[in-house]
Design a protein around this nucleic acid. Structure first.
Lengths: 339, 339
DNA sequence: ACCTAGCACTCTGTGTTCCCGAGTGCCAAG
DNA sequence: CTTGGCACTCGGGAACACAGAGTGCTAGGT
């Protein structure tokens, strides 16, 4: 049905089209790649490929252009991820190594990825789910106001203002802090709710209302899933590209955390560390019909923390992009593991 | 030189051009606005205005378009800031009131402003300069590792990992924390360097190396001016607009913190709370020749914390935009003051 | 059975020409 | 100083022709 030569033709079409951005014709194909056959033969193969929906022609008597299905086949069977050059790898390493805190790591990662791929990079903040509590701090501010600070083992810090129901003396606050830390230190965030459920009862009566308030804020913080925070960079790289549907839609999607989240997230969850490629119309979101997403999880080994990836026009250099995404994911995983 | 009618003509040209996006001719002007004079007269005035550089024609025999100088005059003398509608004000209020922490306030502000003005909104994080230290926390992590957390009165939290030169027992860390807080609590961030300068000397000998390390990280944090962090939103609003120079340049500028910073910052520093309007070529940065910036400081009264504003095509509705920027700045100032 | 050469055909994109109309500048009269 | 009239200038759209690239098909060769 699709013999080797037809596949070679498809590969050649994808490669040429990606590099020139122009529909590729049989003649050019036959000479640029040494297929050892004549343009006429190539035409026959093209006809077959078109028949089966792998390529299409924008207008009668123009060259062929890969369809989403064509790209899919290319990605799955005709290409292999291209590793980065040594220089690039060193650049990544030094750039990421300079990060000073978690925010900085994420920020540098997203910029790096954008620059490397010349696409829009998207990075999800490491999720709290697998994190553990490193420390809980209560800082008395005014009479009835306390700042609650939660520090996780990933270096992540969440802070919330808490308005207490009544004035509480400082030494009581200190005591509550002690109790909280004894109870939670080192525990997984997901187990916090049950761990604190009976905590007020174990306190002196006059500390209970305050503690209850604090706990409700703490739980709220966890529930809010602030971890779904996502940042992107490199929007400028979209300027030239043809997204087939307005640039506006794409930019809007990028600013919608929820949409972005789903883009990165919808993946074969059985192997989270594998590269996920979603091509054009495979993407549910309508505004992104002309774009592809290359994403992967990052984190240490089986402990996947979150996802990152890039978004670009369907007509992108998949092998290179995939290489960059994979490499960056690895390095950022290393950095996070080390800190 | 420029009598009242000429000014009225200029105003009419700006208003028409802003709303229609087409060069406006003498005839249309004479009828749409009741100028009570004939097109011929308007033409004479236009000639005078063009002579002096307030308007220009894209091509011979096309209508007139305001120049940057024309917009400038319009903004300075021919328009007045348009207040928001009651509904808009209420929307702002409720939207901002839901904010849960400082990050959230900034995030909501920038989105709100983008939505309200249909332009790109830019918000600078409240600067640390005027802030005071609310609390310093040292959290022991591993043997030689401590997390330094700095909480300011603005609700801002900075955290840094500190690698100590030697193992330090927990109670010593607690002691250092106490000393640090005694020394710094309530002090302005700018005065921190001198306050801590002789601090190690006042400690037991075996705490000095650790404290020295901690202090160097603390000072570094302050110097790094992490406060110059800037966020933007609403890039999608640029999609349709004509920036006269590529969209790409503008997007690139937006992602350059430094450039963005200068855009908001360069202002008549004597009255920071006033609205600053920078029109087209008045803007130093070359990539932004086709855009204008409307910005203002925010914060409580004379205590200006930072700046916010919007960026859009030179052809924007200045009165409305200025109204929105001013209103949002006021509300966010209120919110911050209350927390 | 497959490849190849040749050929007629079909498009798109580009360049040319032409014309309409909006808008101007100028002038002379009110 | 304002106004009506008038000739002039361009930009932009429609109509048209044309070159070039690319295709599909068929017939002949291996």
């Amino acid at each position: 049905m699709l013999d080797d030569r037809k596949l070679a033709v498809l590969r050649a079409i994808v490669e040429d089209y990606v590099s020139t951005n122009e529909p590729v014709g049989s003649k050019a194909l036959a000479e640029r790649h040494n297929l050892k056959v004549s343009p006429a033969t190539v035409r026959n193969d093209m006809a077959a490929l078109e028949e089966q929906g792998y390529i299409a022609q924008p207008h009668t008597s123009a060259g062929r252009v890969p369809t989403d299905k064509g790209y899919r086949l290319f990605v799955d069977r005709l290409s292999q991820v291209k590793p980065l050059s040594g220089a690039e790898r060193r650049a990544i390493e030094t750039f990421l190594a300079g990060a000073v805190d978690l925010d900085d790591v994420v920020m540098r990662t997203v910029r790096l990825l954008a620059q490397l791929t010349r696409q829009v990079a998207v990075v999800q903040y490491p999720t709290l789910n697998r994190s553990t509590v490193r420390h809980v701090e209560l800082v008395p501010l005014h009479d009835r106001r306390v700042m609650l600070v939660l520090i996780t083992n990933m270096g992540r810090v969440e802070q919330r203002m808490v308005e207490l129901p009544e004035v509480v003396e400082e030494h009581r606050i200190a005591h509550m802090r002690g109790v909280l830390n004894d109870c939670l230190d080192g525990c997984g965030l997901s187990s916090v709710p049950e761990l604190v459920s009976d905590l007020p009862e174990r306190l002196p009566v006059d500390e209970r209302p305050a503690m209850a308030t604090i706990l409700s804020v703490l739980l709220e913080t966890l529930v809010e899933r602030h971890d779904e925070k996502i940042v992107f960079a490199g929007a400028a790289n979209l300027a030239g590209a043809d997204l087939s549907v307005g640039l506006r839609e794409v930019l809007e999607a990028l600013e919608e955390q929820v949409v972005l989240m789903r883009l990165l997230g919808e993946t074969s969850s059985d192997t989270p560390s594998a590269l996920t490629v979603r091509i054009g119309s495979e993407n549910a979101y309508t505004g992104l019909r002309g774009t592809s997403i290359v994403a992967t999880g990052y984190g240490q080994g089986d402990n996947q923390l979150a996802r990152l990836g890039v978004l670009g026009p369907t007509r992108m250099d998949y092998p290179v992009t995939m290489g960059a995404v994979r490499a960056v994911a690895r390095y950022v995983s290393q950095i996070l593991a080390a800190s």
